[in-house]
């Protein structure tokens, strides 16, 4: 995986709370057997009408959203299904970070394995971001700060090991495979 250091982008705001992974990637798109190309189905039922035409007032269809890499979402983002197709779709579409006051556990874990930063901020920071769509923010992963013009640098917490892997392009599968001696020893101990 490509190392990630900083992300500098304007924000797209989706203020709704409890946006679930069925909205991010509806179930009918899970019949794929690869992870490619899911960006076209991202938020499909909010983004397109029954004929497949873009719905003009949905935020991702507005000209301002083009090229944005940071999604600011309402409280408890990505609850529900464990489908990794949700972060695959967000990443494929072009997002590199999601900011909310709360992000569901499985999605957070899935995102970190796919180069999509799940960033949890306090209510006040969140409110400032929600109120100002299109703000150009800078995410510095090494310092774990989110820089917002007019607000300043806000620290965020990201799980230390995932952060290390993202910064250095280390893949977790490789790390786990390298634990094989410890796993052998556990199996001997537990199943003797």
């Amino acid at each position: 995986m490509e190392p990630i250091r900083t992300i500098r982008s304007r924000t797209v705001v989706m203020a709704r709370t409890n946006i679930d992974t069925d909205q991010i990637m509806p179930a009918r798109f899970l019949r794929t057997t690869t992870r490619e190309g899911l960006g076209q189905h991202l938020f499909a039922d909010w983004r397109y009408d029954a004929l497949g035409n873009p719905i003009a007032d949905f935020v991702l269809n507005t000209p301002e959203a083009a090229g944005c890499q940071v999604l600011v979402a309402g409280h408890n983002f990505a609850c529900g299904s464990s489908r990794e197709h949700a972060p695959w779709g967000l990443y494929d579409y072009g997002f590199r970070a999601v900011i909310s006051t709360e992000i569901a556990d499985i999605f957070r874990s899935n995102s970190l394995k796919n180069g999509l930063l799940p960033i949890i901020v306090d209510e006040a920071t969140h409110a400032a971001l929600i109120a100002a769509p299109g703000t150009e923010v800078t995410i510095d992963l090494e310092r774990s700060t989110l820089d917002i013009p007019g607000v300043g640098a806000v620290a965020f917490v990201i799980e230390a090991f995932a952060r290390y892997c993202l910064l250095n392009g280390v893949d977790e599968t490789g790390y786990l495979l390298a634990q094989s001696r410890a796993i052998d020893a556990y199996e001997q101990r537990a199943f003797a």
Binding site: R35, S82, E84, I106, S109, N110, N114, E172, T173, L176
Partner: peptide, 10 residues
């Protein structure tokens, strides 16, 4: 508990 596909691989 439920896991994602990368973790299924793990």
């Amino acid at each position: 508990f439920g896991i994602g596909t990368t973790e299924v691989g793990h």
